[in-house]
Simulated scan of single mutants.
Amino acid sequence: MRPYTISSIVLLSAVCVTTVVVGEDWPQWRGTHRDAVLRETGLIKELPAGKLQHKWSAPIGAGYSGPTVAEGRVYVTDHGDGNEDKEVERVLCFDANTGQELWKHSYDVNYTISYRAGPRASVTIDDGKAYSVGAMGNFFCFDAATGEILWKRDLATDYNARMPIWGITTAPLIYEDTVIQIAAGEKDACVVAMDRSTGKEVWHALDEHAGYSSPILIKQGDQDVLVCWTGESVSGLNPKNGDVFWSIPMLPRNMPIGVPTPVVQDDKLFVSSFYDGSMLIRLHHDRPAAEKLWHRVGIDEKNTDALHCTA
């Protein structure tokens, strides 16, 4: 596999990286609130003419995870330097100002998935800990500064995972004293919550096939709601115990392939999938409840009768 460099990733987020010491961190997938909003002030509105000068570069292997930035450090995962007999995933940490490698952890992995070029999920940083999950469900909690392993889990084994075709892609989500992860497990364990200090299970939920979309937190009334877009539904769960508040079916036409993170604006939640179309959901502001407004699926080139819209 041909390696790429972290400079090509970081350069696209140059403002975030060059201001990391005094500006806003980007400690998890899609930022602090998982909404892809940069709240930093004093941002440039136009790029300067000519070639942008990057601060540093560091070679890494193949992979799909976006970098995260916290406390002056950059975290990313890759497909490391294995040999012909084994594959290796790595979690890497760099100094955000110099690009110096601060620590790395590598582990053997046996890919049984498509698109084998590395792990998918961004590393989540919270309260001095770094949480990472590999494409086959290898879950680690590290000391974010030193790389010391605090605890680890093999989610695929622990939950007898019904592994998605392209593996585990969803980034860990911190809620209070738990870390929540799409585990793709059987027997009501599509989603699991683990104690963030020990890795011990707190709850598991949903007897559904997993998708690829990372869960988010929203507020409905005074209640925190965990929104999970799985391979079969868009559901709102109680993040404290996994109880289902509401669930709207979104069954796959060919295979689960929902990838983007749900987008929320006011009382609307939107998801969009390659095969299965787009759905708009109305969220109740006063209580944890929701209803489908519409679901539109486009024309399948192999089945021209597939265009439909349901309300």
Rank of each mutant, 00 (worst) to 15 (best):
H285Y: 10
D224I: 09
C190Y: 06
H295N: 09
Y4P: 11
S197L: 15
K104R: 15
D266N: 15
A156V: 07
W246F: 14
I257Y: 06
V21Y: 00
L307R: 09
P260K: 01
T170E: 10
L173C: 13
K152Y: 07
S122R: 00
R287T: 15
P48C: 04
W294F: 13
A205Y: 00
G134F: 05
A70M: 03
P262Y: 02
E208S: 09
V234C: 15
V22R: 04
D81M: 10
R39V: 12
A62T: 13
V192Q: 02
G258N: 10
S214C: 12
R39M: 10
M194S: 13
T310K: 08
V10P: 00
D78F: 03
V22P: 01
V88F: 05
L237I: 12
V123M: 01
V76D: 00
R162H: 14
W56P: 02
D85G: 04
V21G: 00
K51P: 13
T157P: 03
D78E: 14
A161E: 05
E301K: 07
L11W: 01
A36D: 12
V244M: 06
F274V: 14
S8W: 04
E71G: 11
S214D: 12
Q100T: 09
S7I: 00
W29D: 02
L38M: 08
P239G: 05
I125T: 05
E291L: 07
H79V: 09
P215K: 01
S197D: 15
V37S: 06
L102N: 01
E84S: 14
C16Q: 09
I113H: 06
D25W: 03
I6P: 00
K129I: 08
A193F: 03
Y159Q: 05
G42L: 01
H33V: 08
R153H: 13
H295P: 03
E89R: 02
Y64H: 09
S8N: 11
A205Q: 00
S7Q: 04
S235L: 06
I9E: 06
R2P: 15
L226D: 03
A189Q: 04
R162P: 12
G72E: 02
